[in-house]
Amino acid sequence: MDLQTAAQINSFLAAFVLLTAFGMLAQKRIYSLIHLFAWQGFFLSINTAIVAYVAGKHHLYISSVLTLSLKVIALPYILHILVVKLKIRKEVETMVNIPTTMLIGIALVIFSYYLTAPVTELSRLITRSTIAVALATVMIGLLMMITRKKAVTQIIGFLAMENGLFFAATSATYGMPLVVELGVALDVLIAAFIFGIFFFHIHTTFDSLDVEQMTRLKEGD
């Protein structure tokens, strides 16, 4: 596989990551949302493997496998179980309507392109053009956390953000050092568990997972 092809595949996968990010933004069903998240992880892990091959960085293979096992298999499985156990309604509830969210998403992509343009010019890596996409994925994850009502969709937004960060690391500098990556992976896993436990408690306390209920925690109400 020569560099040219690798760059091509890389940008294709970046496009797919962006597509799944938008898909998550548009998705109304919670199971499809989890599936899309799994797909995003899948594209990410393939992308990492290709970068590992091209750049000859062997530790990236480990991150790739880690991504595959964690974000494609483990986390979606945990989320799935959460949804089933907590008997969450299958529809995603949004604060802002979906077309508007999409338009904001497109604006965010343009904005992150604008932000990363100087970085891209400095870099000589074949993956440099995907930095903008990585940043956009982070922002879209954040946007998702802002615009959704239910806690489960928010955690998916959070995880998508993490995907974006990981992607940014891979495309900007061919990945972080292995120790950091392992640490982050562990963090994410633990975060997911803590979220899970949290949800059970929120659920039993408020009888709902609607984060708007949290306003009741305010004093003086």
């Binding site: 970046a14 496009a15 938008f22 548009a26 077309p99 497109i106 343009i110 995907t130 996409v133």
Partner: peptide, 23 residues
């Protein structure tokens, strides 16, 4: 159908964006 055609528009827009960003 608005969603259907909206996603068509989104696809085309993403295509345009990825032309500028990735190519």
């Amino acid at each position: 159908l608005t969603e259907f055609l909206g996603s068509a528009f989104l696809m085309a827009t993403l295509g345009m964006l990825s032309f500028f960003i990735l190519e």
